[in-house]
Design a protein around this nucleic acid. Structure first.
Lengths: 229, 229
DNA sequence: GGTCCATGAATCTTATGGGATACAGGATTC
DNA sequence: GAATCCTGTATCCCATAAGATTCATGGACC
């Protein structure tokens, strides 16, 4: 058992990332280095490093001599491009993951069960707390991650990570809006993908996966419009 | 005309990036924060920020409380995965770029001419200087960049950037080795891609592009073995 | 001879401080 | 009344300093 060797920078980064994904700050809000340092009771140095790292993830923007701000939500155009890019890499990952079909199937079944369980809990709750919603999104993402895990290509996987941060920016739009979480649709679409995988139907799996992603884009666009009103 | 608003961090990052791509440091070499600060005559603070950014690009590795080291060259397995990922995103970009076929063709013709000109200059020189080789690689990369420029998807393009840094690590392997630059093959393969594009032969363009990338991988693998001897 | 531990230099990590910049609000000028 | 200038505050940027960790060296001990 190795000792956890972490530095303050990592903790600070985690902390800020949490607040970003919780939506504690509105898009466009300024992230003051000194302010964050005071708030977290550390010096500005680790904060600066954490912000540089977060900037590269796309969640925040940086302007020289002015500071960092929370990235604006994705425009409909950007959402369309994001979905398009996801279709490209996720279908590619699916194709490669079929080489390890047994393990893929097992993992997807497990991930889908966890996803469904969380969806059920949310459906039973009138006003689901943030923690639950956060867990739900993680479970949703885990289903897609499983595909990449068996694709055996670390570069495709790193692209998935890049996409992941932006996918959050997409979700944030509708969390703010009046719309409900799309758990019913997402579960149904994941189930369809899983069914094709279990049948070892490669082309069908690609097709249902593509359909699912495009539906996510559609829903997101719709919710965004609703949120704007 | 706006004044150039840059900060030291950006300059430092550029400086270190230059040295990394020039191969001034061997893979595994330690990048001492204090040492770099002394060397560049700045304080450690901007150096730290630059290194965080470079770490996210994959060119250097970081270990808490130990420091940064130049990333090891890619293993044959990693090269294979890199090529595979490039095939995925570059063919996808090519398909999308065909929607703006006229502009794509014009840009590719221009990029290819520049690439060829540099290849000719290298062929005429007995021992091409680093600067020339660097320019050659940039011209080579510009050909591929042109495809993404017209694909109209910023996320695919950001994936290309991610790949770009690693592609450099791949090249570094053979620059160190005894092998010659593969300019003849690269030019011929690019020409084949360009020809299919000019014919507006979509499937042919994808096929020649895929063939080109796989050939790059083959040559890189071979050169790596040669360099190891 | 091998192992263990103390020691110190080099380095990383974080904190603190001073100079510079951006921005908002009010005064001044035309 | 509008544009310009000035000024104060908050903040950023970087340098310097102090504490913590790593690693290599060398001597003591078994």
């Amino acid at each position: 058992m190795s000792v956890k060797r972490q530095v303050l920078r990592a903790e600070v980064q985690e902390m800020i990332l949490d607040r970003l994904t919780q939506g504690s700050w509105r898009p466009g809000a300024r992230l003051s280095i000194d302010g964050l340092a005071r708030d977290l009771d550390v010096s500005p140095t680790p904060v600066r490093e954490a912000l540089v790292a977060l900037e590269r993830s796309g969640l925040i923007r940086y302007q020289a001599l002015k500071g960092y701000v929370v990235a604006e939500p994705l425009t409909p155009q950007q959402i369309a491009e994001l979905i398009d890019a996801r279709v490209v890499i996720e279908t590619a990952a699916m194709t490669r993951a079929f080489a390890h079909w047994e393990e893929l199937t097992a993992d997807l079944v497990e991930a889908h069960a966890a996803h469904q369980a969380l969806a059920d809990r949310i459906a039973e709750t009138d006003e689901p707390p943030y923690e639950l919603i956060h867990e739900y999104f993680l479970a949703d993402a885990a289903f897609h991650e499983a595909i990449f895990r068996h694709a055996g290509n670390r570069f495709l996987d790193s692209m998935r990570e890049t996409i992941h941060a932006h996918a959050h920016r997409m979700r944030q739009t509708w969390s703010a809006g009046p719309g409900q979480i799309d758990s019913a649709e997402a579960i149904a679409e994941h189930a369809a993908v899983l069914a094709r995988v279990q049948e070892r139907n490669h082309d069908g799996a690609l097709q249902t996966l593509r359909t699912h992603l495009e539906a996510v884009g559609e829903r997101s666009g719709g919710m965004q419009e609703a949120a704007q009103e």
